[in-house]
Simulated assay, not measured.
Amino acid sequence: MPIIKHEGQTQIEFGTGDINVSPGLIQLDYPCGVVVFQPKEPGAIGERKKNERVVALPAETPVRMTFDKVESIDVVIRALQEAKRMMQEETWESLLVPGNGAEQ
């Protein structure tokens, strides 16, 4: 299951091809941009499926990121790019070793 509750937190586990990540619009108390995360049948990671719906119902989006300003999307993109860069480093696992800023 790609979306799990873990120690009181919601965790989205990527890398198994069984989570759908979709952009769109959503109407909450106000209209806003959204990226939704939904469980799906396993498939190839990055596989694209055409989605005819642009506006999602809140009940159909168990986990979502909403955006009031496009600048907020840029912040998330930068964080994802930095996480990718860190994972691509040969020694990225050393960043997780206690004593290197990863203390709990």
Results as ranks from 00 to 15, higher is better:
Phe14His: 12
Thr16Tyr: 10
Thr16Phe: 07
Gly17Tyr: 02
Ile19Leu: 10
Ile19Lys: 00
Asn20Cys: 11
Asn20Gly: 05
Val21Tyr: 00
Val21Met: 07
Ser22Cys: 01
Gly24Asp: 05
Gly24Lys: 05
Gly24Ile: 10
Gly24Thr: 07
Leu25Ala: 13
Ile26Ser: 03
Gln27Ser: 09
Gln27Ile: 10
Gln27Pro: 00
Leu28Tyr: 10
Leu28Gly: 13
Leu28Asp: 14
Leu28Pro: 05
Asp29Arg: 05
Asp29Ser: 12
Asp29Met: 12
Tyr30Gly: 04
Cys32Asp: 02
Cys32Gln: 13
Val35His: 00
Phe37Lys: 07
Lys40Trp: 01
Lys40Ser: 12
Glu41Asp: 12
Glu41Arg: 10
Pro42Cys: 07
Gly43Met: 06
Ile45Met: 07
Ile45Asn: 14
Gly46Cys: 03
Gly46Met: 03
Glu47Met: 10
Glu47Asp: 12
Arg48Asp: 07
Arg48Ile: 13
Asn51Tyr: 02
Glu52Cys: 05
Val54Trp: 13
Val54Tyr: 11
Leu57Pro: 01
Ala59His: 10
Glu60Asp: 15
Glu60Phe: 08
Pro62Glu: 10
Val63Lys: 12
Val63Met: 15
Val63Arg: 12
Met65Leu: 15
Phe67Thr: 04
Phe67Tyr: 15
Asp68Ser: 15
Val70Gln: 11
Glu71Asn: 09
Ser72Leu: 14
Val75Leu: 14
Val75Gly: 01
Val75Trp: 06
Val76Arg: 00
Ala79Ile: 11
Leu80Gln: 02
Leu80Glu: 03
Glu82Pro: 00
Glu82Ser: 04
Glu82Ile: 03
Ala83Gly: 01
Ala83Trp: 01
Lys84Val: 04
Lys84Ser: 09
Arg85Ser: 09
Arg85Asp: 06
Met86Glu: 10
Met86Trp: 08
Met87Leu: 15
Gln88Asn: 14
Glu89Gln: 11
Glu89Leu: 05
Glu89Cys: 03
Thr91Ile: 03
Trp92Asn: 03
Trp92Val: 00
Ser94Ala: 09
Leu95Thr: 02
Leu95His: 10
Leu96Arg: 00
Leu96Met: 12
Val97Gln: 08
Pro98Val: 08
Gly99Trp: 11
Gly99His: 08
Asn100Thr: 02
Gly101Thr: 00
Ala102Thr: 03
